[in-house]
């Protein structure tokens, strides 16, 4: 079983907040992704199905609906560049180009060395501080290609 006891204890606690256990599924999938290697492998999906008393295909169908869940292995650092209108107006394309150049990954792919996964994402609610990117869950706002390069350069190997 891939789920640790600590995680299962957390799920039990999460489920207390709802009249039906299933409502804890999405928050619990977040915890799996955070703790168990950065993506939701078929083994995790299966284990979650067992814990939630669902069919694996049902869990998969939920997980695949949400852009924040990865169903394939992703690089160590996840770089998400917003491509929506407010960011686009202030240079998100140049930002993405530079991110791709620095990491060697195209949008939607991992870099060859497995260090980075680069993606473009929709509006992240930083429109007044555009353009922006999210790196490993942390918001970086008011960017220019140079600043983005510096941020990526400062990440651990």
């Amino acid at each position: 079983m891939v789920l640790t006891d600590a995680l299962k204890a957390e799920f039990t606690e999460l489920a207390c907040h709802y009249p039906e256990r299933r409502a804890a599924l999405i928050p619990a999938l977040h915890r799996c992704q955070e703790e168990l290697g950065g993506w939701l492998s078929p083994e995790i999906i299966e284990a979650m199905a067992e814990w939630f008393d669902m069919e694996p295909v049902e869990v998969f169908s939920v997980a695949s609906f949400y852009p924040m869940f990865f169903l394939k292995p992703v690089g160590k650092h996840i770089v998400s560049v917003c491509r929506n209108i407010s960011c686009d107006l202030r240079g998100s394309q140049e930002l993405l180009d530079r991110v791709c150049q620095v990491t060697g990954a195209k949008a939607g792919t991992n870099s060859e060395d497995g260090r980075f996964y680069v993606e473009h994402v929709e509006c992240q609610g930083s429109c007044a501080n555009a353009p922006m990117m999210v790196v490993d869950g942390i918001y970086h706002e008011d960017l220019c290609p140079e600043k983005a390069e510096e941020i990526l350069g400062g990440l651990d190997r």
């Binding site: 907040h17 709802y18 039906e20 299933r22 409502a23 804890a24 599924l25 999405i26 928050p27 999938l29 977040h30 939630f52 169908s61 939920v62 609906f65 949400y66 852009p67 924040m68 869940f69 994402v121 929709e122």
Partner: peptide
């Protein structure tokens, strides 16, 4: 008062999509 975390889908802002999502389903 309970906190609930979504997982990034615009349609979950639509009120009934939000409720489906909160119940642990596709939005």
């Amino acid at each position: 008062i309970h906190m609930h975390k979504g997982a990034g889908a615009y349609i979950c802002g639509e009120e009934t999509g939000l409720m489906e999502s909160l119940e642990g389903k596709r939005g």
